[in-house]
Design a protein around this nucleic acid. Sequence first.
DNA 1: TTGAAAGCGTTACCAG
DNA 2: CTGGTAACGCTTTCAA
Lengths: 338, 338
Amino acid sequence: MKKNVSQRDIARMLGINVSTVSRALKGVPGVCTELRERVLALAEEHGYRPNPFAMSLRYGSTRTIGIVVPDISFNHYAHLVKWIEAEAKMSGYMCIVTDSGDKYVNEVECLEQLVNMHVEGIALCLSQETTDFVHLERLKESKVPVVLFDRVADVDCPTASFNDVQAARQATLHLIDGGARRIAFLGGPNRIKQAVDRKHGYLEALRERRVPIRKELVKCGHVSFNSGLSDTLELLGLPEPPDAILTDHGLLSIAAFQAIVSKGLRIPQDIAITGFMSDWVSGMSYPRMTFLKQNVRELGRKTFKLLLDQINGDDTVSHVVVNARLSVRESTIKDIKH
Amino acid sequence: MKKNVSQRDIARMLGINVSTVSRALKGVPGVCTELRERVLALAEEHGYRPNPFAMSLRYGSTRTIGIVVPDISFNHYAHLVKWIEAEAKMSGYMCIVTDSGDKYVNEVECLEQLVNMHVEGIALCLSQETTDFVHLERLKESKVPVVLFDRVADVDCPTASFNDVQAARQATLHLIDGGARRIAFLGGPNRIKQAVDRKHGYLEALRERRVPIRKELVKCGHVSFNSGLSDTLELLGLPEPPDAILTDHGLLSIAAFQAIVSKGLRIPQDIAITGFMSDWVSGMSYPRMTFLKQNVRELGRKTFKLLLDQINGDDTVSHVVVNARLSVRESTIKDIKH
DNA sequence: TTGAAAGCGTTACCAG
DNA sequence: CTGGTAACGCTTTCAA
């Protein structure tokens, strides 16, 4: 019944012109104080709110960005969303969050819809299926700035990601130095840069310490709980099973952990485990897992900053790297009492 | 450089009128096929996209809803967001997601901003601080439909929530029937209906089985990891410590679990534990926790449905309840081998 | 200091 | 079948 009141409405009530109301409301000079007061009072009384769509139409800017993540119900991505959103809010941007379900077709559709919404920019965390980037090309044609975060790719796009190679290397060195010799790597598919980088870090560390590389200990498959579970069970069933596992994703960490426990093996005495996962996952398990602590808040912040720069016309393609560092807990320390 | 192309642009290129272009694009009758084809071709070529802000202005509808959650990085809420969003997308709505940080002031601000964005409706999960509802009254004045979900309240607003009383009762009965006699309740503050309901269910079960109620075993405080941790440690330090714990929130479940483990107590031999938590949290722990499995997807779906009805002018205030049911795992079964 | 009018992109109505 | 115009809410330029 009581519709949103517009400037025109206020103007009519006061018997003046809209433009005067506009000026009064905006606080620009050029309207006598007495009249301004009356306008402001009436606006207040009727709960006047500027219509953002009229604004957008007028200025061609929507103060809105889009975020695409593979699975918002997964802790790591939810956290990233949280911090990107917090940062965006501080700059007066609202976020439209979409979930690709880790599927390429959905990712394409999400981007499509965000462009339709005329968001000013998009922060995208790639799905694990994404191998071609024509959809990003299309965005570039539409002049919508895009920043890749967390799961990035080698395309002509600004990115914010973790130091995957070095982090994985560090974790592997830690395992080796703790006495492990048969270290398994449980990772995502080779088409994902993130998975490949982490595997590289792992291999690098093995070479560095002259630990032989065993192909049968490297599992690169679909990132999901079930595949993590079956891959780990396969590893544990080998004639010479691994004495340590490094995982490349929180889901795989959980799956591997549960697979080990279900086999009645003890962590870390029988097998050590570490990898990329959230603080949360690491702390929930018993024993708590040594893990690569990612500064998710920092990544969120950097991602938005990058995006804002792009929105403001900066067209340098920079690649920001946020450090993940090893946080040692009990799942990799053999000489602990249990 | 290459701006978004508008109907007017296309009209100019073809030397015809905008209204004709509009009709052609909309597919309404009243434009000859030959001309329509040319318009469509040109639109396609230049990547024409309807401007949703012009639409919104025209129709006064934005096809957008707002979601407010206490903490999107927490699994339970992230899941709810995921499913509300999925459902919304199917009806052609986009979601603006905001995070109140579980604080009242932020909640107010989130609602304010969503109203400013002219969302057509808002799905709100209350912060644990929220005790007065003037902000909801204000929304009602603005004619923005609101649906409360998960954490609801006794206000004149449609709600979608779990069957908190019965679920808590069921879990408590399970503990009693498993031999527990000194059952602690670890819950949120008494100002939250959800916490109160769950406590009621707990008390009901005790009375039902004639188990004495012990005040010192009931802890109702702030919902956070740290307070859950210290409350549990206090409980464990009692002269007569509890032999089972029921928790009212996922955060508290994790905290209690870790507190117990840190004290070197065995679950379930020394103390049983169960409560409200996500599938995830239950499965991550070892032993896995018996838990109240909430059909989060169903709740998300129902929430959006309720909201959509409101948006479409239905003003009945209905209260939908989704069942949570006990899923028994190892943390409450004493006669299991470990 | 105030008013009038144009324009942002779209659709609907009324003429031709 | 097509063109012209008004309207949605707001800002800005120009004129008074």
